[in-house]
Design a protein around this nucleic acid. Structure first.
Lengths: 342, 342
DNA sequence: AGCACATCCTAAAACCTTTTCGGAGATCTT
DNA sequence: AAGATCTCCGAAAAGGTTTTAGGATGTGCT
């Protein structure tokens, strides 16, 4: 019985191949390529030419095995569908910048089992660090087990304050929105927002209340209208507000989708935005806010920047920096729905 | 000059540690853990207990170095922001299923230089294969240089028909939309869509035209209204259609955003959707389609499934399967904007 | 000529796992 | 009791790279 003559599998060129072609030892080839050690320049070019010729690419596995650093990080997200993960993910990828670092993407679907599984796999691949992206701003339990590499939590902070968490200042965001409406000359402001079960909704409402209190103004309806994050709630709530409090001259919405619903109802009622009443949204979701009628002013939480910072913090921690958390403010992106009166 | 007494760096447990603790050789430990070779069951449990105790995780780098298979694939996307990459990306991640495979995520931002750079890095990490996700359905140039691993192109096919491409049947999608409107009893159908520079726009229009021709009906306005993919074009184009062709009783829109604009203008004109006129969108973008007034019927291209198939094809190709491309049909997701008349 | 020294290069070890082959001990057969 | 057979385990090599320590030249000086 003869063994099948296997097709000679393609074998990527190794440093040995390069060295042989250049007529030097592997050690010399390594030094020539990495610019380390004493190598005569004529030898160096000979090696580099050989490497070029073979289109040699150093085996990162072997390198990582030896150095203990792989130049990879794990990015653990809990919902890829959600719109919050994506910009953060982009920022984090950007932070790894010069191409030294590659990113493993894992989606745990909010499932703790799956998460554990992914972490296991990532550690097995000897990632240098982990970034954990949440989909809500509510604090999340830290990764289970002891993780031998630095971890940075983004958007959703870790429940353990000793961990590194990079978050958004939702209280400040709520304050910003109200202050913008006040600056536009508004005085009778209502707040329609999402589920009270979300920390984000509560925080934004808190900031809004604080800003109104500071201005000595009541909130129209006395308290926020909590509901859901979608358009139909925006329509329904706006209906109630208009009927119960016709004097309202501005509405701060907890999401751009809610704001879209609000705009629609205001149009039904013949209320002119922004002349008779101002509307401001939250999230600055381009697809929703940038093309409505009128175009929607909104609070942008700079999620991409959040991701960049998370990446930077992770790399710093890998290099031994002390952990520290940070919270970032948002900014008002002004469009036509809050043109000042007068 | 004394060298600083380094903090003893944490060293992940190796198979040697496990073997030592269990009182066996590394070879035996390996066999016990991987269930290979002849190992007495009492020895096996001893090894497994030791591994558990040290929370040993096999070093995937060493394993990959030896076997030539890393169990990693590269996912090269051209725009993470775009909504098309994400579901595909999710599907591809799913396909890698049982946790055997990890995915490197790279965003080339549509930049050829950056793309080359990323490919280089991925090959250096010895990925077993590559998935390339485009953001438009227009064919794209294949990856530059010779790639020593299988490559699957998704959404945007490779310009080289010898490559594996997994795409969406936009012509069929256009046909589906028209057939649905016909089934609803409509006869005077217009088509408002995005930039003619997009293959997707042209394909959908082609499918629509074919379906109308097959039914012996003209297209209202004689040809599609090409414009841009956004809401404001939807509003503007609907305005034109209504004024020039008041007899129109259905509008097929090239995107859900266009459809939103169309719905808004129809409302302005007092045209009742779906009683007086039907509207169907494209993409089935939940955030846009699922909460409009009325809720929007749309064509869903099953992008996640596309990603899954791409993953499966890639793994098959890695295992030596012959390359083959495939095109997938969409499906109608019916909501209130196309309730049948009568 | 003989020595010190700088320059350039090489051999070998290390990183961690898997696999092959052979050896040691135990059990069975005659 | 001697050989044959089985069962289980260990030694060693391989995979590709980097680094350390030392070896081989050649140069400058006395």
């Amino acid at each position: 019985m003869t063994t099948e003559p296997e097709v000679p599998a393609y074998r990527p060129p190794t440093l040995t191949d390069v060295a042989k072609l250049a007529g030097v030892s592997v050690a010399t080839a390594s030094k020539a390529i990495n610019g380390r050690g004493e190598v005569r320049s004529s030898t160096r070019v000979r090696v580099l030419e050989a490497a070029e010729l073979l289109s040699f690419a150093p085996n990162a596995l072997a390198r990582g095995l030896l150095s203990g650093r792989t130049g990879t990080v794990g990015l653990l997200t809990s919902d890829l569908e959600g719109r919050f993960s994506i910009p953060i993910l982009m920022g984090a990828e950007d932070a790894s910048g010069a191409g030294q670092v590659s990113v493993f993407l894992c989606d745990a679907r909010g499932d703790a089992i799956r998460e554990k599984h992914h972490v296991q796999a990532l550690l097995s691949r000897r990632v240098d660090g982990l970034i954990v992206v949440g989909s809500r701003t509510d604090p999340r339990p830290p990764l289970a087990g002891t993780i031998p590499v630095p971890v940075v939590y983004v958007y959703a902070p870790s429940a353990d304050p000793a961990d590194i968490s990079i978050t958004v200042d939702n209280v400040g965001g709520g304050r910003l929105a109200i202050e913008h409406l006040l600056a536009c000359g508004r005085r009778a402001i209502a707040h329609i927002t999402g589920e009270a079960g979300f920390q984000a909704a509560r925080d934004r409402a808190e900031g809004a209340a604080a800003a109104l209190a500071a201005a000595g103004l009541p909130m129209v309806g006395d308290r926020p209208y909590f509901g859901s994050w979608d358009e139909s709630w925006g329509r329904a709530a706006a209906h109630m507000v208009i009927e119960q409090h016709p004097e309202v001259d501005a509405i701060f919405c907890g999401s751009d989708q809610i704001a879209r619903g609000v705009l629609e109802t205001l149009r039904d009622f013949g209320r002119d935005v922004p002349r008779s009443i101002s509307v401001i949204g939250f999230d600055n979701w381009e697809a929703i806010a940038a093309d409505s009628r009128p175009r929607l002013t909104s609070i942008d939480m700079n999620l991409k920047h959040l991701g960049e910072v998370a990446g930077q913090r992770l790399f710093a921690a890998i290099d031994g920096a002390a952990p520290s958390s940070e919270e970032f403010p948002g900014r008002v992106v002004m469009r036509e729905s809050t043109l000042p009166v007068g």
